[in-house]
């Protein structure tokens, strides 16, 4: 039997969107998604919440692990177009980040239209706050008053080097949503990882 989507599509997607917007506007700060829909594995409920909030028949989505049940679920509830190749995707759902494609496999826009670029939804085991002086990733950029520090684990070893290389192309780039449990954290292309 197919799982349900949002119980109240209008209001559930509205309240989730507001958190996604604040997440994008205040990078590297985890926020709580208020309503999580059911999600067939390997998609996590928080990732499904983002897809159902933002995607429909006019967006193309690339699934790292296109299991039949997820595909059926997304086609039925969101009427999605699935992208065969990462470079064709408006959104990509990364369910196994350790083996995700390199970031430059995704569209980063063109100079006149840098918005024609991919948004990645990356599922993590956890997003951990970092106590003062603890080890983590420290970020700065638009939306961040001073700096923000958070621990983002489970990514390919050279993930941050790949992302730093993309920064040379600004304003081209790709935008990232990390999800874990009920949390979402965004890193738009303009957010810089500070050294050490």
């Amino acid at each position: 039997m197919m799982l349900a989507a949002f119980a109240n599509p209008v209001f559930d997607s509205q309240s989730n969107f507001r958190e996604l917007l604040q997440a994008m506007a205040r990078p590297a700060v985890p926020r709580t998604l208020p309503v999580l829909p059911p999600a067939p594995a390997p998609a996590a409920p928080a990732a499904m919440a983002i897809v159902l909030t933002l995607c429909d028949a006019t967006t193309s989505v690339w699934l790292q692990q296109p299991e039949d049940e997820v595909v059926r679920h997304l086609r039925f509830h969101a009427g999605l177009k699935l992208a065969d190749r990462p470079q064709d995707a408006d959104f990509a759902l990364i369910t196994n980040p350790a083996s995700m494609p390199p970031l430059d496999a995704f569209a980063c826009g063109d100079m006149r239209y840098p918005d024609r670029s991919a948004s990645l939804i990356i599922q993590l085991a956890a997003i951990n706050p970092v106590a003062a002086g603890g080890a983590g990733n420290t970020f700065a950029g638009p939306g961040i008053r001073d700096t923000e520090t958070v621990a983002i684990d489970g990514l390919p070893a050279d993930f941050w080097q790949q992302r730093a290389a993309l920064a040379a192309l600004l304003p081209l780039g790709i935008d990232l949503f990390f999800v874990a449990g009920q949390q979402v954290l965004a890193l738009p292309r303009t957010t810089r990882l500070l050294e050490g």
């Binding site: 996604l20 917007l21 006019t58 408006d90 918005d115 948004s119 304003p171 738009p188 292309r189």
Partner: peptide
């Protein structure tokens, strides 16, 4: 609304 929301997120990502 979804179209607007996608556009708004890109707008925030590219100040």
């Amino acid at each position: 609304k979804r179209m607007l929301r996608r556009a708004l997120l890109k707008a925030v990502a590219i100040p």
